[in-house]
Design a protein around this nucleic acid. Structure first.
Length: 116
DNA sequence: ACATTGACTCGCG
DNA sequence: GCGCGAGCCAATG
């Protein structure tokens, strides 16, 4: 298997799949992309996006709920704004993943995926 | 070829 | 919650 082009595509698709108004951790994006354990690769890909890229990069956050940028930095503010536009609010520099995290609903967790 | 550096994460104490 | 160490691995110097 090749190393890069395929991974890039998979990661972009995973990010694009994050629903509006929700966020997803780097590690989970990697998993969805079929690259478990490769959260840093996701970060690297996002770091190299062109300015006009449509990918919703701002929906990707740390597993802790914090943004990947230093609080107060320009990048941090940009991301905060984009998220706020979708109703994702940050308190004490972190996002409530139980509320905005892209994850299975409680029912799905308890009952398993439909049809399984 | 080696060392450092990240938009990361997890387990342990 | 925090610091540490260990994985992770492509890019950079």
């Amino acid at each position: 298997m090749p190393v890069r082009a395929a991974h890039l595509k998979a990661i972009r698709e995973a990010v694009a799949a994050i629903p509006r108004g929700q966020v997803c951790a780097y590690g989970r994006v990697a998993e969805v992309a079929g690259l478990p354990g490769r959260a840093r690769l996701v970060g690297r890909v996002l770091a190299e996006l062109a300015p006009g890229d449509n990918l919703p990069w701002y929906r990707v956050v740390r597993a802790s709920g914090q943004l990947a940028f230093a609080p107060g930095s320009r990048a941090f503010q940009r991301q905060s704004e984009r998220l706020a536009e979708e109703g994702v609010l940050i308190h004490n520099n972190r996002i409530d993943l139980n509320r905005y995290g892209w994850q299975l609903t409680l029912d799905q967790q308890l009952w398993g995926p439909p049809g399984a």
